[in-house]
């Protein structure tokens, strides 16, 4: 199948989501409520202090929005769906078609996420910007680097979720793997708590794991908490993690698909 055909899956996924209009409205509402909850948590934590560890409250509000709604997406349906398709052997239907299954997943998920960014994150960001206020990037260079980090963040979460769902082929269930991942992501991605508030040893360990590139590093770069050379260095480290995970995924997939073909579904 031609590479040019894959974006069609993105468009289809985007359009399919539009059919569930009530889902859109309630997701916006739910996300809005959760975002304001985190803003309230940080407001309460800062109490009347202007800044803590060199970070101000307005910076934390911006962090909440970037680290949460913008960079995190709900991997649960993805992992359960892919995990079940692989375990039940339904995935063999795709193996017969002239397309690359992980490629199909990538473009499909891209459509889903584009949809969520436009219909959920954007309205939430506008409401937060107008009511509480959002900060611009620390500098033009930080803003430009953030775009690269955004791409790394998305790819990292996609690779992690896909690797986890492929593991369902050999170990545990997609259900259990998803819950394990949720627990890890809550701490290690920096979605809730930025590493700069953590005890130094913990921050060092988490800062070297791939999960940190999903929320922590991109948000920190946007806010200028990493200087430009450090931002470039960590971008390179992130890309190295991507390459490693991508290689691992390719290896897992080749083993899984070989076994699926041998089993005959």
């Amino acid at each position: 199948m031609k590479l040019g055909a894959y974006p069609a899956f993105t468009a289809t996924a985007f359009q399919a989501r539009l059919a569930y209009r009530n889902q859109v409205w309630s997701s916006v509402f739910g996300e809005l409520v959760a975002t304001f909850a985190f803003i309230a948590v940080w407001t309460a934590a800062f109490a009347d202090r202007g800044s803590v560890d060199g970070v101000s409250l307005p910076e934390m509000v911006t962090y909440v929005l970037i680290a949460g709604p913008l960079l995190q997406w709900n991997t649960t349906p993805f992992i359960r769906e892919v995990g079940d398709a692989i375990r039940t052997g339904n995935v063999t239907a795709y193996l017969l078609k002239p397309l690359h299954y992980p490629g199909l997943l990538l473009f499909n998920q891209l459509g889903n996420n584009a949809f969520e960014q436009v219909t959920i994150t954007l309205p939430v960001a506008i409401v937060v910007a107008l009511s509480v206020g959002l900060l611009p990037p620390a500098s033009f260079a930080h803003g430009a680097l953030f775009l690269a980090y955004w791409a790394v963040s998305w790819s990292m979460l996609f690779l992690i979720a896909t690797v986890v769902s492929l593991l369902a082929f050999w170990v545990l269930t997609a259900f259990a793997l998803d819950w394990f991942l949720r627990g890890i992501m809550a701490v290690a991605s920096g979605a809730i708590m930025p590493f700069w508030f953590m005890p130094a040893p913990l921050a060092t360990i988490l800062g070297n794991l791939p999960f940190a590139w999903v929320s922590y590093y991109p948000s920190a770069v946007y806010l200028g908490k990493l200087d430009i050379p450090a931002a470039f260095l960590h971008l390179a480290l992130g890309l190295a993690w991507l390459a490693a995970l991508g290689g691992f995924l390719a290896w897992l997939w080749s083993r899984a698909s070989r076994r699926l073909v041998v089993q005959g579904g």
């Binding site: 819950w179 627990g183 809550a186 809730i192």
Partner: peptide, 18 residues
């Protein structure tokens, strides 16, 4: 249990600092 513990650990970390 681990899924929830992760979230609680984050909240505990917030409390530990603030």
């Amino acid at each position: 249990a681990i899924g929830y513990a992760g979230v609680y650990a984050s909240i505990a970390l917030v409390l530990a600092r603030f």
